[in-house]
Design a protein around this nucleic acid. Structure first.
Lengths: 157, 157
DNA sequence: TCCTGTTACGTGTATATACACGTGTGTATA
DNA sequence: TATACACACGTGTATATACACGTAACAGGA
């Protein structure tokens, strides 16, 4: 007889599992979005910009949960392609990121390909499971911030 | 009155959420493993090698759910550090990957740091939630393979 | 034996990711 | 006002990721 209602210890590495699934899922989305000349990371950036007139780099990075310097690099190809403009911001320090018409057009073109990738994933995993996964991922991110932000073992003053 | 037991449509992008959380969680693990001079990806590779005497590159890549060429690149730093050896395999084509004593030593050193990173995550999210996340991630990966492998839109012959 | 297809790799290229570090710029304080 | 600090960025460096492409080696059949 097993002891009831005892939570089994967590086995293995959460980060490893996350990275594993993320690799495969990213490949799936990328293979679809490639038809529009985009990667899923780029599609995500454009999607965020579609909903916002203008943002500073730091604000953009915070919303994407992405390192600021990573965002700078990731915007490079989008700027080169003429989809995004990075101009002077309110401050002399700040810079404003904005979506250009061509960028919106590419996003519109890519959208049905993203939709198909997502539909195939929904079918493969089951809608219930995907919904549960979304909830768990969102919740985990929130709790992660609440508990671990500015508690990292950088230096004990 | 809301219609009962109707699964709400899935909102947003699964891949985006996965990548978001993976970024943050990876940073967390990396900050701990840095004390042992490792990244979580490298720790994962060493962990797999600890349980296996010898493997071909392709077999290793398959077990890691990692692209073969990605694995080749990721093994570079580990070889340079003298933690892993890549020698001739059974075949003249194949190559055997093996963990060296120094590699095992580093892994042993890193293990408590990984443990702490995992414990902090467990505390931040709650053990139940982490267990649920593991189950969902594992299950999703399996179902992903069953449904989407060799069904990718590469080319319609 | 020679040809053909498959298998197991490596490399070039491009993007994704983030830390350490340095540079201006704004702000508040002595 | 001079100074110190905080803020917003960019860059150098290193790793992570994978597709396209090419090469050498094996396995079968003509």
């Amino acid at each position: 007889m097993n002891p009831p209602s005892v939570t089994p210890p967590v086995r293995g590495c959460t980060c490893f599992r996350l990275r594993q699934l993320t690799r495969r899922v990213t490949q799936h989305y990328d293979s679809h979005l490639a038809r529009a000349g985009l990667r899923v990371t780029q599609y995500g950036l454009l999607s965020m910009l579609v909903r916002t007139d203008s943002m500073s780099l730091s604000e953009f990075a915070a919303r994407m949960e992405m390192d600021r310097t990573t965002l700078t690099r990731n915007l490079g190809p989008l700027e080169t392609a003429g989809w995004v403009s990075v101009t002077a911001g309110k401050d002399a320090r700040s810079r404003a990121v904005r979506l250009i018409a061509a960028g919106r057009a590419v996003w519109e073109t890519a959208k049905p390909h993203w939709r198909q990738a997502q539909d195939e994933l929904n079918a493969a995993l089951g809608t219930d499971r995907v919904a549960a996964l979304h909830g768990l991922l969102d919740d985990s991110l929130t709790r992660f911030h609440l508990a671990l932000d500015s508690t990292e073992p950088s230096a004990a003053p």
